[in-house]
C-alpha cells in the first residue's frame, strides 16, 4: 500500500459533559476510499468537523500530507487540500450551479480588488480559467445542463452532485463526503458510486461517511467503525462485517 495521507492521533472532543470523540486514531492512505461508519450519534460528523477545522479538538492532533492541521481554520484546511460536503447539503442557494463551483476555485486563485477593478490580463485569464474549470466539473458530475439554474432549484440528487463538484473545485487531495447517498434511490446511489470510483481513479483519496452499508462495503478499501465516540474497529470491509464488536454495536446482531 502507498503512503499515509492523513493521520489522526488520539482525537478527543467534548461538548460540555458529552463525549463526542474519545481517543480516535486512524490512518488514511493515499488513494484509498476509506469508510467511516457507526450508529447515529457515534461521532462521525464530529470527526469530520474536527478534521475540516470547524471544531476545535480538545486533544490529539491531525497530520495531513506531513503537515499538522491547525484547528479552527477551515479555510487553511481547504488550502492544504481537504474538501468536504455536508450531511445536510450546504450550497449557496441563491447562486447558480456554475457560480457555486466557481466559488470552489476561490482558494486556488488570487485576484484581489485591484485585479477585479482593473481587469488586467492576469485577472481576465484567471477568471476564464475559473469558468473553464467550473464547466469541466459540472460536466464531470453530469449536471452541466443545470449550470445556470439556482442551486436551490436543483433536484436533491443534483444538489449532492453539485456539492461534490464544488468540493472538487478546490483541488483536494482528500475528499470527505458526509452521507452523500442519504435520501437517494437505488439508481441514484449506483451512479453516485460510479462517480466516487471515478474520483478515486483521478488520484483523489476519499473519506466517506455513509449509512448505506451495502454502498460502504462495496466501495471502500478500508472501514473504521465508531461507536459512542470511540473507534471500535478498523479493517477491510469483509473483516469489519465479521467483527463481533461491530455486529453488536452497529449491525444489531445480524448481517443483512
Amino acid at each position: 500500500m502507498s503512503s499515509t495521507l492523513l493521520e489522526a492521533r488520539a482525537i478527543d472532543k467534548h461538548f460540555g459533559g458529552v463525549t463526542a470523540l474519545r481517543d480516535v486514531s486512524l490512518t488514511i492512505r493515499q488513494g484509498e476510499i476509506y469508510g467511516l461508519i457507526g450508529p447515529n450519534g457515534a461521532g462521525k460528523t464530529s470527526f469530520f468537523n474536527v478534521l475540516t477545522g470547524l471544531y476545535h479538538p480538545d486533544g490529539g492532533e491531525l497530520i495531513f500530507a506531513g503537515e499538522k492541521l491547525q484547528a479552527s481554520a477551515p479555510h487553511k484546511v481547504a488550502r492544504l487540500g481537504i474538501a468536504r460536503t455536508f450531511q445536510n447539503i450546504r450550497l449557496f442557494g441563491n447562486m447558480t450551479a456554475m457560480e457555486n463551483v466557481m466559488v470552489g476555485r476561490h482558494v486556488r486563485t488570487h485576484a484581489g480588488v485591484f485585479g477585479a477593478v482593473l481587469h488586467d490580463r492576469r485577472t481576465t485569464r484567471e477568471e476564464a480559467a475559473i469558468r473553464r474549470r467550473a464547466e469541466e466539473l459540472l460536466n464531470y458530475v453530469n449536471i452541466a445542463d443545470r449550470a445556470d439554474d439556482l442551486a436551490r432549484h436543483l433536484s436533491y440528487g443534483d444538489q449532492r452532485r453539485l456539492e461534490i463538484a464544488r468540493a472538487l473545485a478546490t483541488d483536494p487531495k482528500l475528499l470527505a463526503l458526509d452521507e452523500p447517498a442519504a435520501g437517494m434511490n437505488g439508481t441514484e446511489t449506483a451512479s453516485l458510486r460510479e462517480l466516487i470510483e471515478g474520483i478515486r481513479k483521478d488520484g483523489i483519496t476519499v473519506l466517506l461517511i455513509e449509512h448505506d452499508v451495502k454502498l460502504v462495503m462495496g466501495l471502500c478499501d478500508r472501514v473504521a467503525v465508531l461507536d459512542y465516540g470511540e473507534k471500535i474497529c478498523e479493517d477491510v470491509p469483509s473483516l469489519v462485517q465479521k467483527d463481533p464488536k461491530v455486529i453488536e454495536a452497529y449491525l444489531g446482531g445480524s448481517i443483512a
Binding site: 470547524l54 477551515p74 474538501a83 450550497l91 449557496f92 442557494g93 447562486m95 457560480e99 482558494v107 478546490t170
Partner: peptide, 14 residues
Amino acid sequence: VAIREDEIAAKSCG
C-alpha cells in the same frame, strides 16, 4: 455572496 448564503460552507471552500 457565498458568505451571505452560507458562511460555514464558504469557510469550507477555503
